[in-house]
């Protein structure tokens, strides 16, 4: 991290508040320090605690200044119209996830076969449950959603989030059937759980950072505070069996499941263009999968309807949106 000029700290201290100067350590620029300070103050104003507000402000700012992600400091992160609770041990929802979830919900609404049959969605590696709950809030009921995560902490947080948002009135009061189940997606006993005849959407934001990238490319707040379990696939045994790069092992397994379950649409979040290209290769290289999914797209950070064709390794692939490559989208039908 480049050294900050002392004048920045003086400016923040003089123009905004000493707390802003404290937050500058992690925020790295004055406007975002001012923003974060405002959000911390709003949080204190909205929540009650026996401690005096000034003390709480100092405590929270100090915690944040040490590098704790703001979402863990405040305990929540907005996701679409929802308020998702965040706790250490569970990955914090990202803006990119919010963007593609919204876009997918629009696609599902547009292509819903009929309003009477409920849409069924399988969310693997659900974490806070943000994708499942986000889709629940955006799709017309009834919806059938099944969220699966290996971590019991994540499953309990996902259930907490369901009740929290229902209580806030952000979700329909009688949740369409939505379950969160703790399970390992590599387990051979997983399939009997997934009894739905045909899933409309298989969506997953699996761990996808390679060990090297985790050491070098991740932000300090991510590396030090967010669970490694949700970020780096440490699955050496399965990697050897599936025969792929260690960071792609979840995609290999997810595509295996897609080949069995044959959901109508599939979406995986990926790290960037190289990983997206590798996933496209995996789909195209498998005769069964490429038969199922004639349509393979790469979505960028902010996806929208228009797409452009681009050559990625061996294949011409439609790219949607703007920004870095963020996801791979498969669709069984020729309708977009």
């Amino acid at each position: 991290m480049p050294r900050l000029r002392p004048s920045l700290f003086w400016t923040a201290r003089r123009d905004i508040s000493p707390f802003a100067a404290l937050l500058l350590r992690v925020c790295r620029d004055v406007p975002s320090a001012a923003n974060e300070l405002r959000w911390i103050r709003e949080h204190i104003a909205l929540t009650s605690s026996p401690a005096p507000p000034k003390f709480r402000l100092w405590k929270l700012c100090e915690k944040r200044a040490k590098g704790t992600p703001l979402q863990y400091v405040l305990g929540t992160q907005p996701f679409g119209g929802l308020e998702i609770k965040c706790r250490p041990g569970v990955l914090i929802p990202r803006h990119e996830t919010e963007a593609y979830t919204t876009e997918l919900a629009q696609i599902l609404v547009r292509h819903q076969p009929s309003s009477s049959t409920p849409l069924s969605i399988l969310d693997l590696c659900t974490g806070t449950g943000c994708i499942a709950l986000g889709l629940l809030s955006l799709l017309p009921s009834p919806v059938h959603i099944h969220g699966i995560d290996i971590s019991p902490t994540a499953i309990s947080l996902a259930n907490t989030n369901l009740h929290h948002n229902t209580r806030l009135g952000l979700l329909p009061p009688q949740p369409s059937s939505i379950h969160f189940t703790p399970a390992d997606i590599f387990s051979p006993f997983l399939l009997p759980f997934l009894t739905q005849p045909t899933w409309d959407l298989l969506i997953s934001n699996p761990p996808y950072i390679s060990r090297g990238a985790f050491a070098r490319e991740t932000a300090r707040a991510v590396r030090n505070y967010e669970p490694r379990l949700a970020l780096v696939p440490d699955r050496d045994g399965e990697t050897a069996v599936l025969g792929c790069a260690s960071e792609d092992v979840f995609y290999a397994r997810l595509l295996q499941l897609a080949g069995i379950l044959a959901p109508r649409r599939v979406f995986f979040e990926v790290a960037g263009i190289e990983q997206a290209a590798r996933v496209v290769d995996m789909v195209r290289g498998d005769a069964r999968l490429s038969g199922f999914y004639p349509q393979v797209e790469i979505w960028r950070d902010s996806p929208h309807e228009e797409y452009e064709m681009q050559r990625v390794r061996n294949y011409e692939v439609p790219f949607r949106g703007s920004g870095g490559a963020r996801g791979v989208y498969l669709c069984r039908h020729d309708q977009r």
Partner: peptide, 20 residues
């Protein structure tokens, strides 16, 4: 034109931006 004013570079799980 819609722009999200976030720094370029790695996104997704690699970083944890609060800018919205």
């Amino acid at each position: 034109r819609v722009e999200t004013m976030r720094a370029r570079g790695a996104g997704g799980q690699h970083v944890n931006k609060t800018e919205s």
